[in-house]
Design a binder for these strands. Sequence first.
DNA 1: ATAAGGTTGTTAACCGGTTAAGCAAAAGGA
DNA 2: TCCTTTTGCTTAACCGGTTAACAACCTTAT
Lengths: 344, 344
Amino acid sequence: MNQKITIRDVARHAGVSVATVSYVINGVNRVSEDTKERVLEAIKELEYRPDFTAISLSKKQSKMLGVMFELEESGSISSIFYENPYNSEFIRGLEFVTRNNGYDVLISGVGKPDDYKNWITKRNLDGLIALGPFPQNVFKEMETLSIPIVLIDKYGEYAKKYHNIRIDDERGGYLATKHLVDQGHTRICFVSPKLTIHNPVDNKRFLGYKKALNESNMSVDENLIFEIKATSLEDGYEIGKKIMEYSGEITAIFVTADILALGIIKSLNEHGKKVPKDYSIIGFDNISISSYMTPALTTISQDIFNKGVVAGQTLIDAVEEQISHPKTVNLPVKLVVRESTKKI
Amino acid sequence: MNQKITIRDVARHAGVSVATVSYVINGVNRVSEDTKERVLEAIKELEYRPDFTAISLSKKQSKMLGVMFELEESGSISSIFYENPYNSEFIRGLEFVTRNNGYDVLISGVGKPDDYKNWITKRNLDGLIALGPFPQNVFKEMETLSIPIVLIDKYGEYAKKYHNIRIDDERGGYLATKHLVDQGHTRICFVSPKLTIHNPVDNKRFLGYKKALNESNMSVDENLIFEIKATSLEDGYEIGKKIMEYSGEITAIFVTADILALGIIKSLNEHGKKVPKDYSIIGFDNISISSYMTPALTTISQDIFNKGVVAGQTLIDAVEEQISHPKTVNLPVKLVVRESTKKI
DNA sequence: ATAAGGTTGTTAACCGGTTAAGCAAAAGGA
DNA sequence: TCCTTTTGCTTAACCGGTTAACAACCTTAT
């Protein structure tokens, strides 16, 4: 390979010192128009491209942001991460804004306790986005990190220390349930990951579910709460079977992720049940395929791309010290009625 | 932040020189067991983590691999990239192997001609994977790059200079068409991106389509070739409308991507047509949702995760100089029969 | 005329690692 | 015994940038 062009080559070519070249590149106002032009000329002629690695080392910032989420035992990024287009769409929004600001994004998972800290330190990441659920202890570990952190869809005490981007989950839960209630349903399943203190997102949605029921003088029937292990097609399918095994009456299902709805519907179909004839079903997220399924899925829509954009912008602002105090952004949700729900 | 622990801290703490510490870390066999132990001890005590940035600078290798693909005009990564789970699944396989080898992967798009070269140089990427279609001139540009390159699903003269991972596209096209022919179909649509010299993948699949028809004494009817612009739900939907507008007879459809099939089916349904009653449809790729759609999609399956793994391993081998000459791997395809096709 | 300040540029240390070269002491060979 | 190797460790230059400190020159004010 032909030798790499360095800042020293440029300096020599322009007849100035390396410092001057550096100043020109960084827009430091210490150089005369005259020399600035000569330097710029040299840069162009030599096709000089500053080396990020060297810049990182001396400036102690890498122009790289990390995205962290749960990891499989295998050490592989959870297939669920990729299976659910929600995450892909988020990343797309994120990269849109980071790219336009000269940042690259690195994706990793939370594996062994110390792993991701290692990763952050080694790669000199400038900031971190925490996506998806992970064990509580990770948050404790995070405190020792000295880079800005943006949490996605997190609630709780620990979350207060960081920046937060989330949607109005309670309202989402409420809108979904209300829609079903308005259509005359009274036996409405709630399907979500386990409702624990560690899962406040779904707790909030559950709160909305409960609120809508209560408003119509109904109460939560514990038998209608179904728990999935992970947000995947497979898990949706499995929970669909469970629902089919239930002996009581069910006329509608509220699932906290569109992707789960797909799995559930397959299950129902295999049992000879039709949506929305036999069951109304409403999802959450409004991923792109939702409108292409048959039947098209009624769902609670959130602008996931935009969520990624806001998260990215917030993190960059924090990294570049435009903001210092923890900032929380609440994004709106709305009901999108399609074909999977109908009046009873 | 508490000062970063550097190799000099470790050296001081262990009472040796930095060189010795470096040798210990890199397993250079020049250090006595005794001092090695002291150094290791110091590393542990101080929780020292070598800085990749510094390593990159001096070793001139970044332990980062790039994934390059087409870019939207907006400068954003093509939404299609994320919309099609094919790509996500590939990346998942890729990251599985890179992660286990200490590499991180950076994703970018091909934007302005010079853009991605800039990116590669600036980030000191060790290797590159080229995914998805891009303009011919990019390949010419690539020649000036001095890092190993792995091409995914590429054919043609230019491809011979690089490593290639692909599947047996012709056989895929053949199997799909043969399946439909075996079921008694004679009026079979072929839906794919434009068949040009720049799109050899779909050309190969078309060859298989043609071969299967010819074997049964049928010939290609130009009217049954439908062209989509991009591999997206939206484009599938649009082409579905076109198919509905066609006045001649059609009983089956072969699409070169599952995601397109979803869009087409929606279109058909809106015109009151049912799959597989009115139309048999077969896809390509076997993405995860294919088996969860209604009807479940008959398709040509390729192991996309594995494709990512093989691509990653090949690139790493090339980077680490385990292989020098261009290597080509052909992965198998197979027919997966589900519900979207039936005997006429 | 001189001090003070602004403008434009250079020198050299530094970021945190790697590694060629050098050197002393121990081991091996004649 | 003396010379050559080997072993074990250190010194210092280097990777490609940034930036504090300094210097020379040119204005302007007093």
